[in-house]
């Protein structure tokens, strides 16, 4: 493993009496595709929410790109270079696909109210750049022909792709994908695998939560398994697949 991009140290989160995360520690290297798997309710999404600032952890914390990640506001996580998608797709339904990606540029652009009202040269240039970048990203995820359709009118697979494009618009160092293959058919999953692989090759580290074990094992460099909020194992797919505890967790011992 090369340089560590994200280090989670003893992250804990509980809801009332339920311990959703029990001191989870793991490290993701720059340039990796890192898989996070586990049965339903194992705490994968909770981990995501802590990482992206939607939840404040009750213990532990994250170090990202060498500096601690303050778990106070989600918008800061995005500014630091962490982008995410959601398990149950969350697009801006009544905005067009293009606008969705343009919103994704928010943290990397500056224009304010006065710029918008006065339409000065800098604002116009920035706006044009936002639009161009968004169009490029739609091409990148291959849904450029749906640019002017409302997000909610896109097919399921295209919505997944749009959400990834929106996340990529913030030029993240770490892209967190929450079950991107859920509900996809075999062809769509294959396309998604290529897309994720391509994103990694273009230099973005990926954290992947996924139920499709085949996809995870085929795609990821390393895999961590969560069960009842605790980390069971963190290793290369070949080792994880053979681990007795993982097999038990999945089969429900």
């Amino acid at each position: 493993m090369s340089e560590i991009l994200l280090q989670a140290t003893a992250v804990a989160k509980h809801f009332g009496g339920i311990k959703a995360l029990r001191d989870v520690s793991l490290a993701i290297g720059r340039g990796e595709i890192y898989g996070l798997i586990g049965p339903n309710g194992a705490g994968k999404t909770t981990f995501f929410n802590c990482l992206t600032g939607l939840y404040v952890p009750d213990g532990g914390g994250f170090t990202f790109a060498g500096a601690p990640l303050l778990a106070d506001a989600p918008h800061r996580a995005a500014a630091r270079g962490i982008a995410r998608t959601f398990q149950n797709i969350r697009l801006f339904a009544n905005m067009t696909a293009l606008e969705n990606v343009m919103v994704g540029r928010h943290v990397r652009t500056r224009a304010g109210v006065f710029g918008a009202i006065l339409q000065n040269a800098a604002t116009r240039a920035e706006e044009a750049a936002i639009r161009q970048k968004a169009i490029d990203l739609l091409h990148y995820v291959r849904i450029e022909d749906r640019a002017d359709d409302l997000a909610k009118n896109l097919s399921y697979g295209d919505q997944r792709r749009l959400e990834i494009a929106r996340a990529l618009a913030s030029e993240p160092q770490l892209l967190c994908l929450d079950e991107p293959a859920a509900g996809m058919n075999a062809t769509e999953t294959e396309g998604l695998r290529d897309l994720i692989d391509g994103i990694r090759r273009d230099g973005t580290t990926i954290l992947l939560i996924e139920h499709d074990v085949k996809l995870v094992m085929g795609l990821c460099d390393r895999v961590a398994v969560l069960d009842y909020g605790a980390l069971v194992i963190e290793d290369v797919p070949a080792v994880v697949q053979k681990d007795q505890r993982v097999i038990e967790a999945y089969l429900g011992a």
């Binding site: 918008h75 697009l91 918008a116």
Partner: peptide, 28 residues
């Protein structure tokens, strides 16, 4: 002009889905 600006889009994003708006880095 506001409606078709970075700020206006951010407002519409908040209107559509506040959690997603936060996640893309909007200070809601």
């Amino acid at each position: 002009r506001l409606q078709n600006s970075r700020i206006g889009r951010a407002w519409q994003a908040i209107r559509e889905d506040e959690v997603a708006a936060k996640a893309v880095g909007i200070n809601t």
